[in-house]
């Protein structure tokens, strides 16, 4: 078994490392890069807590080998905030709309929502719900997560967020 030399860009920073081929991307990020924002939830590819952005795809980093990411640009929750350190629109949305309770799924939710809004700047509630179908939350019942993403979309689009009447 030969170690592989990989070059990746993580949150805008070029990184070179030696990895065992069997090292999963989530373990590479958490244990070799000390980026513990992406979480290991189910470890079986179902829950989405390990979601990161890789070359404009939302991927489950527990189901991807680090060697497969060679050459890729990766964004984790640590790279989401604005350059001046203020919260991004999505982070602000999750805060303002109470889109989290225990917070375990949140890094994955935000990274998935980030890619969703990149591909569809003004999603309907239905599109948001289908868009985050690969991310499980056991606390919120998703209602406030959907609102948080709507808040972020509105903020990015420059239209003030208004909650629909119940």
């Amino acid at each position: 078994m030969t170690k592989s030399h990989i070059k990746v860009t993580i949150n805008g920073k070029a990184v070179e490392a030696l990895v065992e081929p069997r090292t999963l991307l989530i373990h590479f990020l958490r244990e070799q890069q000390n980026l513990t924002g992406a979480h290991i939830g189910c470890d079986t590819g179902h829950c989405g807590a390990c979601t990161v952005d890789m070359d404009e795809m939302s991927v489950k980093s527990c189901m991807t080998f680090a060697v497969q990411a060679n050459g890729a640009a990766i964004t984790t929750i640590e790279g989401v905030a604005n350059a001046d350190g203020t919260l991004s629109a999505l982070q602000e949305g999750f805060r303002m709309m109470h889109g989290l309770q225990c917070g375990y799924c949140t890094p994955g939710m935000i990274l998935r929502a980030h890619r969703l809004l990149q591909e569809n700047a003004d999603p309907t509630e239905d599109e948001i719900r289908h868009g985050i179908a690969g991310n499980l939350c056991r606390c919120t019942g998703y209602v406030n997560i959907v609102k948080a993403i709507q808040y972020a979309a509105a903020k990015i689009n420059g239209t003030p967020y208004q909650e629909a009447a119940e």
Partner: peptide
């Protein structure tokens, strides 16, 4: 098929 993340890969 599966979910959005899995469909990217």
């Amino acid at each position: 098929i599966a979910d959005p993340q899995i469909r990217y890969k």
